[in-house]
């Protein structure tokens, strides 16, 4: 066999390995996506879908306050959740990495993410229990005399934020911990040798070095949070809807697929913009 035909045979074999995955992704990811983009340019009037190309859905989105408001609600909740989660998770990751003896670190870490493994729907439901009028939080507050009547915690934005923060504190503890343990102790030693105090070392050395890890975690938080339907739907109730809730509403009441598709693309655009904004800290694709 000459080298050329041999090479060709090799290449054909290689395609055989890769093609199934490529075809699957193409047929069930790329094609539906293109189709959805096309659908977003149709419109729905009453019970009919008008198959003519128009930007009406997008214009409607920016023209109708309640739709635009959903996007702002989503952005607000997502940013609040991301910031609170990072602030809560960083010290915990730090304590596990620095204060817990090495052989217990793995256990401490596993414990800190254990509730991750409760079902996704169930996790929000559990918070509904915890925050309900007669739930443990309200009962404890009434019992200790902090408040007289139970706080209306469930079906509020606060409940949504708490539910989200709970999930993302676990996620971020994991990513930030992974970053902290990779730091060479030499940095700290060098800083100490040069006369830096604990706080100075943290602020000028540790924090900047762990920033990439924080950004990856924060970006992940942003993406997962802004696209989530369950948490706001179970915990937030029907006031101050978020974008994914509005998308799902389009499907239910009026079967307005074109509008749902357009809103989904808006959601994707927001995620893409967020990605571009923090792209220089993210090294997701390794060369």
């Amino acid at each position: 066999m000459s080298t050329l035909t041999h090479e060709r045979a090799e290449r054909r074999k290689a395609w055989g390995f890769v093609l199934p995955a490529l075809l699957w992704t193409f047929a069930f990811f790329v094609v539906p996506f293109i189709y959805m983009a096309a659908v977003s340019l149709w419109t729905r009037q009453g019970r009919e879908t008008i198959h003519s190309w128009t930007l009406d859905n997008y214009l409607n989105f920016f023209g109708k306050p309640h739709l635009l408001q959903a996007l702002f609600n989503s952005l607000e909740v997502t940013v609040i959740v991301t910031v609170i989660s990072v602030i809560l998770a960083y010290p915990l990751a730090w304590i596990i990495a620095e204060r817990v003896p090495r052989r217990f670190q793995r256990l401490a870490l596993v414990l800190s993410i254990l509730p991750f493994w409760t079902s996704y729907v169930i996790r929000s439901y559990s918070w509904l229990l915890v925050l309900s009028d007669s739930g443990p939080v309200n009962q404890a507050l009434v019992w200790t005399g902090v408040i007289d009547t139970p706080l209306a915690l469930s079906a509020t934005r606060t409940a949504t934020v708490i539910g989200f923060v709970h999930f993302f504190v676990m996620l971020l503890t994991l990513t930030i911990y992974a970053n902290l343990v990779q730091l060479s102790p030499n940095y700290r030693r060098a800083a100490a040798d040069l006369g830096a105090g604990g706080l100075q070392t943290f602020w000028h050395i540790i924090l900047p070095l762990t920033l990439p890890g924080i950004m990856v975690g924060a970006f992940l938080t942003f993406v997962l949070c802004i696209g989530d339907y369950i948490t706001p739907q179970i915990l937030g109730g029907n006031n101050e809807l978020l974008l994914p809730q509005v998308i799902m509403l389009q499907l239910g009441r009026t079967a307005n697929f074109p509008m749902a598709a357009a809103l989904s693309l808006v959601l994707m655009a927001v995620v893409t913009i967020a990605y571009l904004l923090c792209a220089r800290w993210l090294k997701i694709e390794r060369a």
Partner: peptide, 18 residues
């Protein structure tokens, strides 16, 4: 890798409409 970067809501909607 691409589907990993897209919200599952969007993947689901795309498949549903197709």
């Amino acid at each position: 890798i691409a589907p990993m970067t897209v919200s599952t809501l969007i993947i689901g909607l795309g498949l549903l409409s197709l």
